[in-house]
Amino acid sequence: MSRSDVLVDADWVQAHLDDPKVVIVEVDEDTAAYDKNHIRNAVRIDWKKDLQDPVRRDFVDQAGFEALLSAKGIANDDTVVLYGGNNNWFASYAFWYFKLYGHQDVRLLDGGRKKWELDSRDLVDGAEVPNRPATEYRAQAQNTALRAFRDDVVNAIGAKNLVDVRSPDEFSGRLLAPAHLPQEQSQRPGHVPTARNIPWSKNANDDGTFKSDEELRALYAAEGVDLSKETIAYCRIGERSALTWFVLHQLLGQENVKNYDGSWTEYGSLVGVPIELGAN
């Protein structure tokens, strides 16, 4: 696997806007962003409505994912290109989710919506929605080799790499959420003991594109992460750590990396687990 298999630039997307076997999918934290405007022929996946179980805190199951992709007109052999706002946070989350259910060819638009906008590329009105005929998508069983659960994290303390990708202030316990959100959570602040704080933003340039493989390898080496060991990445709800998972697993080719989607909103609410405060 190489970088070009999982990451495409804006020119590539521009050249494939009318390719019927390429499905461009917008996934945003702000799920209404697509309604304002979007890349022509892009479909929307709503990370809250489409990707979460409506009752329990968990993902939609295999049948639910099949129904979703079928309705969106995505076939098993389509190339799916994901993009979104927030430097691709939720597009990365969707990428990881697509891989969890075994989609073969899924890629990220490097820099996401921001890079596209900063390049002043065309976006179409939100009402202009492509008409993709429904498919009969078949998903695979969830590949839990990519997903960490709370006990995996507790057992990883002092034993595996734990990478906390939140901002330094969230890591130290000074903030409970990213600073563009109200600070209203009730769980305990802090981080998992022995976790290294390597904010997701260190993986990206200001315009949202990923740094080079060499820069990324140097980053994790300088932070003392031994990539030969198993690694679990986490953040607050698992979307920023999906971006770090993408970097480590997809760009740098590290097989033994999991994303902990329960992340701090779960861990910081568990009774009796160890928590550490303070900076790295």
């Binding site: 330094p168 903030l175 600073a179 563009h180």
Partner: peptide, 10 residues
């Protein structure tokens, strides 16, 4: 204060 990214909004 150290120049590290904390948040971003459109």
């Amino acid at each position: 204060a150290s120049g590290e990214f904390t948040a971003e909004v459109p």
